[in-house]
Each structure stands twice: as C-alpha cells, then as structure tokens.
Design a protein around this nucleic acid. Structure first.
Lengths: 230, 230
DNA sequence: TCAAAAGTGTTCCGAATACACCCATGA
DNA sequence: TCATGGGTGTATTCGGAACACTTTTGA
C-alpha cells in the first residue's frame, strides 16, 4: 500500500531504502567414528560472548553468496572443494541485538580424512571445536534452530539424493556408507537390506582394492561411477 | 583470510561493512480450470522495462522476511492468510544491473475462488496479469530460473506433504484435488489409484454436502480433518 | 436417451522389511 | 582358536501401477 518499493510503476532507487546487514553462516558437518560432528566457534564479544556459534561472516559486495560461504568454509577448515548447499535464510528482526542482520545459511559436508592435517591451520585466532551433533553446548543467536533445520534437511535429502556420500572419501566400504546413513537418521539399519538397496541403484562400482583394518576380513572398497556427482 | 568479519575474535561493527539491498520476491500461483497460473507484473522502468517480473519489494527494517512477503502478496492479490513458504535466496552479483540486490524468494499458493472479487483492487498502478505457468512470456532478471526452481520444489513437496491442498477451497471434491496433483506434476493420474492413495492417508473426511455442477452425477465434498494444517 | 463426470476392485509387480549364519583376517 | 567385522539369501508384507464398467444427474 504505502510501500513505495513495491510499486513498479514508480521510479525509485535502491539507495532510497534502508539496507540490513547480510551475513553467510555455515553449518559444517563431518563424520568421525560413526558420529556426526559440527564445527563451532566460541564468541569473544557481545552479544553472546563466550557462547558457541556456527561460523559466519559478512558477504563482500562483489562475491556470490555461495562464494562467501566457501570462503568462510576454507577459513575455518583450510579445505577447498567441499560439498555446500544453501539451507535457508533467517532474518527475523531482533535475531541479532546489534542491528538488523539477515543471514543466508549454508551447510557443508566434509570427509573427516581431509581435515586431519589442516584443521584451523589457516586461522588460529578464534577458538573452534568439533562437537557431537546430538550433544551440543548452548548456542548463540538462533543457531540451535538453524542446526535443527539442517538435520531435518539432511534426513530428507538422504532419501532421494546421493548427499550421504559427501561425508566419505572417494573410495569407501559399504559399512562406512551405512554408518553415514545411520548417523544422519540416528538409528540403525539392517546390513543386508542396506546393501541390496544401495547396490540396486547401480551408482557404485567396486574398486580393485580392499581395506584391511583390524583383525577381521578385509572390506571391498567402492567408488562412485563416473557419471555420479562429486 | 583477510576478511575481518569472519574472525569472531576481532571487534567489529556491522556498520563497518558494505550492505547490499535486500528484497523479497513472491511467486504467486493459483489453479484455474485445471491449469496453474502465475501472477506477473509488467516493469515500467529500467532495467528490463516492459518485461514481466514476479512481484517483489524491499523489506522494511522492522519486519520479518515472511511479513514482507505477506505484505507484498496482499498488495498484489488483496488477500490475506495465504499459504506462503520460503523458496531460496538468490544473490549473485550482477543479477540486478543497478546495484547489489539479494532477494529472498517465497512462493504462495492460493485458492482461485478467493481472487475473483479482489484481484488488483488494492493497487491499480501497476499492470499485473495471470499467465499459464507452462506458457510464460520473457521474464526480467533471473526470474525464469526462480520459477523453474519453484516448480521443482512444488513437485518434490507434493509427494510428502499436504501442500497441494493449499490451492483448493476448504471443501473440495476428489476430482478437484486430483486436478491439483495433475497440474503440478504436469501429467495425468489414474483416478482409482489416486483416490485410494489419498483416502488411505486418512487426512480427509466427507462433508455432508455434494457439489452439483453440470449435467452429471454430483460429487462428494471433502474437507481436511481438524488436525490437518491449513 | 444421451452426454458427462462420479464412483468403484482386482491383479500384478517391485520395493521394503525381518531375520541368521559363514568368511577372512590378525592377534 | 578366538574375536572381529565382512559378506550373503529367502520369505513376507506393503504400496504403486495398470486397467473398465456402472451410477447419477441435467439437458
């Protein structure tokens, strides 16, 4: 009604309107010992000083949202080429007591093996730590809700996409893959049924290698077929 | 790396960072004669003057994103209490040649019967028109991609939610409901299978009314059970 | 009586589930 | 030889897909 910007018939300039701050936050997940873990940073300043938060930062004016998220991700983990997908945009007034902040949230899945060497190598100024996803400390802002939403999204996408593979190395055993599914769904799966279902989709192929680890039969290693996304 | 905002250890103020413009755009869909239709407004100014675009506007500093979308929706359709859901946030630099504009896109589904009286009553300054979703004119900005994305989302959600009902009046026939599903999926469904499947979910109940329309057998009217969302 | 949409059942097939034992290895 | 995780098959149940005729109404 009285919002000038909503009437395309009028001449207006974007500069005439107040502009909120826009940040990108990233929910970064990995899988260690069959358990999903989430990277959090401890806040040093008001508001929520001392509390944990998901990493994030302001976007630059000349970069895409996804680029800002990738940049954030690399700063926190030291790793490039990580699976990343937009989750949701949170922008309630008051979610940040400082000023109006709209945050575009992404989530990232990363193979834990890629983290071992370089975690936090690029930036040791902030305290960062991996927490078990299902046992988190109190979180700043609306970050608890953001993480809940991420879990719901992950569970949904697990059913009809190959998103689960993003938590694994390029070659993996079927037991490792099953552990991914169990960690995301947070309940056990039947081994025979799981294998039959995965193999029937015809997206995996055996490598000529096996994985020997511990005093038991070696496991067949698989990889994605060439056409599968990675 | 050199992004100060990404380091929570440093003191910073949101005001120190450049702020993009943020808009909310709304993909507004309805169903008329078994066909999905989309509301577009014609642009009068540069850029894309004369082309059609989905309605949108700037957010106010003290309203939520959803509130901005509802406001926009009411301005365009004159109707309140419409189903609305966030779709995705588009923010590539260069998507708007004027300045950096990030748009949070929502989509809305509305029963066509609620539109008959009041369409455009609230605002006759801009030229607005309903187009068949599968036969659209050339669109401004990245709006064609936004609409494609909406269709994909709708098709996905149709399978595991009750989203389809949002295009219908509170009481409806099973044929009308089937028409919704067929329009979104853009292909026909078997009548017997459709009815069995819908009724087996146990979310509908018969009303004590029927709908008589045309020279044929009247149709049973159904409504949602009390616990179903609407 | 005709045209038009409403309403109704059965068969078939593939996917999901439940369930238990042998295999290969290192210690 | 034992402990450990890898690897395999069958029977049952459930849901999805294919398919055609009768019913009720207004014209």
């Amino acid at each position: 009604m009285s919002q000038p910007a909503t009437d395309p018939a009028k001449t207006y300039r974007a500069e005439d309107f107040p502009r909120p701050s826009v940040t990108v936050d990233v929910v970064i997940l990995t899988l260690v010992e069959g358990e999903l873990r989430l990277l959090l940073v401890r806040r040093r300043n008001w508001p929520f000083a001392g509390m944990w938060a998901i990493p994030g930062g302001f976007i630059n004016m000349d970069e895409s949202l996804e680029h800002a998220a990738l940049r954030e991700l690399e700063e926190e983990t030291g790793v490039r080429d990580i699976f990343l997908e937009q989750l949701y945009t949170f922008g309630d007034p008051g979610r940040d007591p400082r000023t109006r902040v709209i945050t575009v949230v992404y989530y990232a899945l990363i193979d834990a093996a890629r983290l071992n060497v370089s975690v936090r190598a690029a930036d040791d100024a902030a305290e960062a730590e991996w927490f078990p996803l299902y046992h988190l400390p109190d979180l700043a802002f609306d970050h608890a809700a953001i993480i809940d939403y991420t879990i719901q999204r992950l569970r949904g996408k697990l059913e009809y996409t190959t998103i689960g593979f993003q938590l694994l190395a390029p070659e993996f055993t079927l037991s490792e893959l099953q552990a991914v599914y169990e960690a995301i769904r947070n309940r056990p799966l039947d081994k025979r049924n799981f294998r039959r279902k995965i193999l029937s989709t015809d997206i995996l192929e055996k490598t000529d290698a096996t994985k020997m680890e511990g005093p038991h039969r070696p496991a067949q290693l698989y990889r994605f077929k060439a056409d599968a996304a990675r």
